[in-house]
Design a binder for these strands. Sequence first.
DNA 1: ACGCTCGGTAGCATTTCGCAACTTAGGCGT
DNA 2: ACGCCTAAGTTGCGAAATGCTACCGAGCGT
Lengths: 158, 158
Amino acid sequence: MSEDSTCSVARSLGVVGDRWALLIIRDALIIGSTRFQEFRDGLGIASNILAKRLALLVEEGLMERRTYQESGVRSHDEYVLTEAGRSLSLVIGALAVWGRTHRPKSDGTSPRFTVDESGLTARLAFVTSDGQEVAPERLSAVRTADAIDHRPDDRRVG
Amino acid sequence: MSEDSTCSVARSLGVVGDRWALLIIRDALIIGSTRFQEFRDGLGIASNILAKRLALLVEEGLMERRTYQESGVRSHDEYVLTEAGRSLSLVIGALAVWGRTHRPKSDGTSPRFTVDESGLTARLAFVTSDGQEVAPERLSAVRTADAIDHRPDDRRVG
DNA sequence: ACGCTCGGTAGCATTTCGCAACTTAGGCGT
DNA sequence: ACGCCTAAGTTGCGAAATGCTACCGAGCGT
């Protein structure tokens, strides 16, 4: 569709914009699925579609396919997220927030993100460069060139 | 597909998980498109598809259709985002971050979010309940019930 | 009356999706 | 050795979504 659009949103959607990609990533990220059958059973996706999607995700560098051999047991395949795939957690998280808020369901479930060491729950928010959180309603969106990203004060992540 | 899934991510994707919905929202949010032709020209989408998508977005409560009459000028239609539609800015923002990072393009553009009063740029990040930003790599995702959301210390948003 | 723009519809080709059945490959029991 | 089981697909076919192009109808300016 638009894998080479100038807009970064369109480029992202060119990779994960189909009906299944993000759900596969979600299962890998939250449930920890790694194997073909796990994805198939967890998502209820047809096997031909799953095969095609997984191949695409591997080709796009979001997952890595490994053939795994435990002693004595027949070897099997694993699909594990790469860093690029794992970093879609922001998108997954944002979708989860929206769904909880605007399509609530009494027995619904959502992914939550906890900090590895402390176990604290993290949530998504807009923050300014000085680390101050801002409510989305107070923001205006504008279109800017990506190159502007490289500001010296943008390194406070991690 | 899965509009009534227990998973909030799947429910969200049931609404905005097709190839065009998020791009339409993006144009409405960032460029400020409101009219049929604006979306059509801006996205290069076929008019029958656009008509169907807009109708769906209205039906789902993400946009509102208004017929607009300025004095002397022929009336025209406007599609404006509702609060539910505008709050997809988190998803758009997350997709923009991912695209800039993992599908960079020298002449690429992205939506940026600026704080209305101060003009500061805001970006999307995971934060803990004490307002501290956390890198996505340090997070683990778990599946939890939506109802758990209502904890007393979860109210520092806004 | 004529043409222009806007917001669509209608018809048809192409692409993607989904279901079900079949295949391939390794390992296991007997 | 022989058949059976499971994992990971492939294949064939029908259904649905998408895309392209052309056309339509109302409102307005001239």
